[in-house]
Design a protein around this nucleic acid. Structure first.
Length: 572
RNA sequence: GGGCCUGUAGCUCAACGGUCAGAGCAGGGCGCUCAUAACGCCUUGGUUGCAGGUUCGAAUCCUGCCGGGCCUACCA
């Protein structure tokens, strides 16, 4: 039994996430967590909402709520959706928690003590009408290069030229449209990442087994131009973690907060502390996961994230931890994903293009989405969601291969032997061959999951399901029943036991269906099989079972057409 | 502009220097009838984007070109 710490990138608080967000971090992380728990390991699976930053403030302003209220409400919404998708977090925290405030301030204090913080005077655009400093991208104007009149302060989307907000002709606030802007001087803290460059580079170089996507992005940032740049870790905002040096005030930094990307990863740790507090446990409860000097030496830590998150997890957060000089647990493996695209284009939260978590659950049970998304996870490149592919895959894999297997076994058993596991007959060569085939495929399945190979694991699981259908076809209990009822009883008994086995093996992918299968088999024995032969005799002769409802109804052409139409436009 | 990833059967992908380039779906044929017209078996189908090069041997390594995607540090 090993100890596994697993974190999913934090979904931003600003609205309901789409399927692309889900498959890029939370869902594969959940798959891995469920698998490791099923194997008997001790797992701490952490996620949280990322609540700070300008977009949260603006989203709250739009609904007329105080930002704290907005975040509280949206956290509840996201939390409910996570439950709906079966995401088995041990804790779903909030980056705005008191625990995260304290820990973020602690890290900043340590970094300052170690000489890794410097103060920088900056000139930034202030909007008088909005009463706030504007991040570069929230300033709009005419591009001096191409004349495009909706260029943003960081870059012109039309000609892709990188810009400085002061380059813009006729600049205005993207929030209010106000032209009443001025450049003001403001002071900010910078994390001296450049001083830690060599240490971080050596650390990255030691991770030879990480996905290329992860290491290539890290190396790019480490080596590009002048190398790893120092990074501002404070902002002139109201909503966030107030800048403090540990528990002490930070002279000159009054009224400022830490940058959202500084406090967000720290929330992984703080969320674990939130859990301890919720359970009434002492600090040791969470520190044994995070402090090498307090019990975390034997922890394996895996992070899951979309590729846009990689720089922060390979560079900024490690810089924070290394720079603290304290023995915090660093990540052992970073699993990163490309993007899921929607019908040829991008999923878009702002444009409402694509399928979002709430709508997805209105249409179909979570397992349909979990299966499709995980079996098509964008591991090697971007992958595309189309309704046609979704319909075909789900109908074939879930309804025909798995669902129908359960259906044919239980209905046959009930009609010939009643609703108890039939007795009589002994295994022969065919059954032993099946066990051998299952054992071989199970080894492969476990290997893929151990290495977080999501798509391959899904393909292997499907192969395991197929073995059941192949066996039935070859054994043909409906035929043997006429000539040798004992043999038919044995074959049927094996089929029923296969259902229990499949429920256990499929649980990481389709947990709700897995539960329904176990319930139908009326068993609570969900031990991961150490020995397939033994696992297929757990349900003994005479054990009662029930015939479950159809596990997966097929998606009809009419449904597909309707959904295709409904989700191609703007979110309603 | 720079960098990274990617281009393999109609579709989605595997194979990451070495037996005839594999699998699922789709297409064709046969079988079965327990089952959600489901399942099983067999089968059609590829000059591995293009052009060179390295090697006994290349989808795989190198160079160039063409196409797709992403990143480029004050959105997160």
């Amino acid at each position: 039994m090993a100890r596994h710490l697993i974190t999913s990138a934090l979904p931003y608080i600003n609205g309901i996430k789409h399927l692309g967000n889900l498959v890029g971090s939370q869902l594969p992380a959940d798959l891995y967590a469920r698998y490791l728990r099923a194997r008997g390991h001790e797992v701490m699976f952490i996620c949280a909402t990322d609540e700070h930053g300008t977009p949260a403030e603006l989203a709250a302003a739009k609904t007329g709520e105080a930002v704290a209220d907005y975040c509280k409400r949206m956290h509840a919404v996201q939390s409910e959706l996570a439950r709906g998708f079966g995401l088995s977090f041990d804790h779903y925290g909030r980056s705005s928690s008191p625990q995260n405030h304290a820990l973020t301030q602690h890290f900043a204090g340590k970094l300052a003590d170690n000489g890794l913080i410097r103060e920088v005077e900056e000139r930034q655009v202030y909007s008088i009408a909005d009463g706030r400093f504007l991040p570069d991208r929230y300033i709009e104007g005419t591009c001096p290069n191409c004349g495009y009149d909706k260029a943003r302060g960081d870059q012109c989307e039309n000609c892709t030229k990188q810009l400085d907000p002061t380059d813009l002709i006729d600049p205005r606030s993207a929030i209010s449209g106000s032209r009443d802007l001025e450049v003001r001087t403001t002071k900010h803290l910078y994390l001296r990442q450049s001083a830690l460059k060599d240490e971080i580079a050596a650390w990255i170089d030691s991770k030879s087994d990480w996905p290329i996507l992860t290491t290539s992005i890290a190396r790019k940032w480490l080596n590009d131009g002048d190398g790893l740049q120092d990074r501002g870790i404070t902002r002139d905002l109201d909503w966030g973690v107030p800048v403090k040096r540990g528990t002490e005030p930070w002279p000159g930094m009054e009224g400022k907060v830490f940058y959202v990307w500084f406090d967000a990863p720290i929330e992984y740790i703080a969320a674990t502390a939130e859990l301890a507090d919720k359970l009434g446990e002492p600090d040791a409860f969470w520190r044994r996961w995070w402090r090498l000097d307090e019990g975390a030496e034997d922890v394996t830590y895996t992070q899951f994230m979309g590729k846009d998150n990689v720089p922060f997890h390979t560079l900024s957060f490690p810089a924070t931890i290394i720079g603290s000089g304290e023995p915090w647990k660093m990540v052992d493996y970073i699993k990163s994903f490309n993007y899921l695209t929607y019908d040829g284009g991008q999923f878009s939260t702002s444009q409402g293009r694509g399928v979002f978590m709430d709508h997805a659950l209105e249409l179909l049970p979570a397992d349909y989405w979990r299966w499709w998304l995980l079996s098509h996870a964008p591991e090697s490149g971007d992958s595309e969601f189309t309704w046609e592919n979704f319909q075909t895959s789900v109908n074939k894999d879930l309804a025909d291969v798995l669902g129908n297997f359960v259906s044919r076994v239980t209905k046959f058993a009930r009609s010939k032997f009643g609703e108890t596991v039939p007795e009589g007959g002994d295994w022969g060569g065919r059954e032993r061959a099946l066990v051998a085939d299952l054992a071989e495929r199970l080894r492969a399945y476990e290997g893929f999951l151990d290495h977080r190979e999501v798509r391959k694991a899904a393909a292997e699981l499907r192969g395991i399901w197929v073995l059941g259908n192949e066996y039935l076809q070859a054994a043909a209990p409906w035929a043997t029943f006429k000539t040798d009822p004992h043999a038919a009883a044995m074959q049927t008994r094996l089929g029923l036991n296969l259902i229990r086995l499949y429920a256990i093996l499929s649980q990481p992918f389709v947990p709700f269906t897995s539960e329904a299968m176990l319930e139908a088999m009326q068993t609570g024995d969900r031990d991961w099989p150490a020995d397939i032969g033994a696992a297929l005799t757990i349900l003994p002769p005479g054990h009662a079972f029930t015939v479950p409802e159809v596990l997966f109804a097929k998606i009809t052409d009419e449904q597909r057409a309707e959904w295709e139409e409904r989700f191609k436009g703007v979110r309603s």
